[in-house]
Amino acid sequence: MAEKILDVQGLETQFKTPDGIVHAVNGVSITLDEGETLGLVGESGCGKSVSMLSILRLIQSPPGQIVAGKAFFKGKDLLAMSNEEIRQVRGGQISMIFQDPMTSLNPVMNIGKQMAEPMLLHLGITPKEARERSIKLLESVGIPRAGERLKDYPHQYSGGMRQRVMIAMALSCNPQILIADEPTTALDVTIQAQIVDLVIRLRQELGMAIIWITHDLGVAASIANRIAVMYGGFIIEEASVRELYAHPTHPYTLGLLNSLPQIQRKGRQRLYSIEGMPPILLQTPRACPFAPRCRWVREKCWQQNPMLESIGDNHKVACWVDTTTGSER
C-alpha cells in the first residue's frame, strides 16, 4: 500500500452567523495516498468546499472557525502549524484551484505576474526564470502564444483558458496534492471534458495526488480512484470507484447514481430520485442528516446518527440499514 500523504481526522468547521451556528463540516475524516485521486462528491452546500478550505486554513474567520480535527500532511498537522509553516505548504506542496475561473484570478494584475507569484515564493527562482517557466507551463496546459499572453489580463482570456491558467499556476511548484474545487462546474460541457482530460494527462506526467470536488458523480468516476460522498457536512459513503458503482449502499448514494443519465441501470434497482431539500445546518445533527429524505428511514435513524463504518473491502458507509436487504445492520 502506498504512503498516506494526507490524513484528515474528525474535521469540524462552523460558521457563526446572525441566525445561529452553521455546522458546515461535522467530523470529516479522509485519507489520501500518494498519487491517488479522491473524488469528493455531494450536492451543493454539503460542505465540500469548506472542508477542503479548512485543511489549508483558508476559511474566512470570522465567521468561520475550525473547531476540531487534525489534518496530517506528511505527518505534520496542518491545523497546528504556525502561519509561516502553513504558507510554505499553500501553493507549494498543496495547491488549489477553484470553481469559478471568471472570479478566481485578480482582474487588475496581468497573468504573468499572477503566475510568477507562487514560484518566486516557493521555488526561490528569479523573475526571469519564473517567466520562462510560466511560458512552458502555459504551453503545457494548451495556451497558444503563451509568451505574448503573459502580459494579458484575465478578462482577455475565455473561461476555459482561465481555468487552464489556474491549473498551470497550481502545478507550477510541483505540489504533492492538488485540490480541485469543482473546476469544471462553471464551464460548458465540451470545455469540461477538455479540462478533465488535461488534468488526467498532467497527473500522469507529474504524479501528484488529487482531491477532485464535484457534485457530479459521473465526472468523479471519470477521474478518481476512490470516491467519498458527502451529505450535510458528513461523509456518508466511501469506496473505490468500481466498488461504489458495483455495490452502492447508502440511500443517498443510490439516489445520486440513479439521477445519473449515463449509467446503465440494472433491472432490479428501482429508479427513484432524491426528494426534498438538503438539510439546513443550523442544529447539531443528532439524527441521521438524510432521515427527512430517506425512504429507508426508521425510528433509530431519528435517535442516533450512524457512524461511518467499514462494510467490506475499502468500503465504508454511514447508515443503519443494509439497503441490499432492507434490514437493520
Binding site: N83, G91, T103
Partner: peptide, 22 residues
C-alpha cells in the same frame, strides 16, 4: 470576499501581500 483573494492566500502569499498587492 472575492475569490481571487482566496487564490492569493492559497498561493502562500503573506497576508500583507494579499492585502496590498491583490
Amino acid at each position: 470576499r472575492q475569490d481571487y483573494v482566496v487564490t492569493a492566500r492559497a498561493k502562500g502569499l503573506k497576508e500583507n501581500d494579499v492585502i496590498n498587492k491583490h
